[in-house]
């Protein structure tokens, strides 16, 4: 068995999902597949952080409604976000009243949650588990950079934190639902990149390592997949990942088919610089458009790789480098 690669013989399935986006996300190329698009960036709440929690709550409730399951029937909630101490997730958990594990893998949290949910399901400890992540633009910009009202400039390599939440309901193996067959837990890879406005470049090597390790562990090649999609490498990071995989000896025509949710999220609108990022980016795209593609049997096998930059405002001020990670799940549909 290869380092960090996990198999799920009992085939935990994603039976439903809920995805909510903010007002600006109506512009997203993926918006048509979202369940709900808010008119107010604070979800009618008083503060950005309260709106952040409210949006995550709505996504969870939509997922539960679709599966016709009550909160009390859910055994575990795996959630995370980018606010200090993950308060939106903590408030979400207290409202839902579901046993809760807060997880932090920055923008890779959606998949780390799905991995833990799949493990608990495999173990037989969980009948239903909710896993996901969210980000709200204003509260995350304030957390990591400047409050939005300050109007700080960003270079073209910077990314735009999405306002979105995506949660998936994971259950024991069921017919006619996409199955989590395997997963690879990311290493924390630090190539001494220090620029917080250049995170695509920092995250690409982590995605490269995770994809390489997953394929090796599974004895597969890129062509075994109908789709390989990364979380938020964006327009700068994706070409770096592709270059890295070609160096690893993978076929160029397969490597060039790899897609990135962050690079595509807002189309070619330059307002959004290199593209989307945030814990809600991979969560909303993977649990809407990609899951829909699997359910409709457009894809039979997908590798969803969420990428995360593990920086803090303090480490940036102290000129520390930015370690990055990437977690992957292999989802199939028969």
């Amino acid at each position: 068995m290869d380092q960090g690669v996990i198999y799920f013989p009992s085939k935990p399935s994603i039976i439903a999902s809920g995805v909510v986006g903010g007002p600006l996300e109506k512009k997203s190329v993926f918006a048509a597949d979202f369940d709900l698009l808010l008119d107010d960036e604070r979800a009618e709440e008083k503060s950005n952080e309260k709106g952040h929690k409210q949006m995550a709550l709505q996504a969870c409730q939509i997922a539960l409604e679709k599966a016709n399951i009550k909160e009390r029937d859910v055994d575990f909630l795996m959630s995370g976000d980018l606010v200090n101490q993950m308060t939106p997730s903590n408030f979400l958990a207290s409202t839902l009243g579901i046993p809760y594990l807060g997880l932090y893998s920055a923008c890779a949290t959606s998949i780390s949650g799905a991995i833990v949910a799949a493990l608990l399901t495999e173990l037989g400890a969980s009948k239903y588990a909710l896993a996901g992540a969210a980000s709200q633009h204003n509260s995350i910009e304030r957390q990591f950079r400047y409050p939005v009202e300050y109007g700080g400039q960003k270079p073209g390599t910077a990314q735009w934190t999405v306002t979105a939440a995506g949660y998936a309901l994971i259950a024991k193996g069921q017919m006619n639902s996409p199955v989590i067959e395997a997963a690879t837990v990311g290493k924390s890879i630090d190539l001494q990149q220090t620029d917080p406005f250049h995170m695509g470049a920092a995250m690409a090597p982590a995605a490269c390592d995770t994809i390489t390790r997953h394929l090796k562990g599974r004895g597969q090649s890129l062509s075994d997949y109908d789709l390989i999609i990364t979380g938020d490498l964006a327009k700068v990071g994706l070409p770096i990942l592709q270059e890295c995989l070609i160096k690893e000896g993978m076929a160029q025509q397969d490597v060039m088919k790899i897609r990135d949710a962050g690079a595509e999220f807002y189309g070619d609108d330059q307002t959004f610089l290199a593209g989307a990022s945030g814990a809600g980016c991979s969560a909303s795209v993977f649990f809407s458009t990609i899951l829909k593609g699997l359910n409709e049997k457009k894809y039979e096998r997908v590798l969803a790789v969420a990428t995360g930059a593990l920086l803090s405002p303090l480490t940036v001020q102290q000129n520390e480098s930015i370690p990055c990670t990437a977690h992957a799940i292999e989802i199939s549909m028969k």
């Binding site: 600006l24 960036e41 204003n138 009202e149 306002t163």
Partner: peptide, 13 residues
């Protein structure tokens, strides 16, 4: 005065 009158907001479509 600005803080009293206005509520901060992000970019809108």
């Amino acid at each position: 005065i600005g803080a009293l009158i206005f509520h901060s907001k992000g970019q809108h479509p």
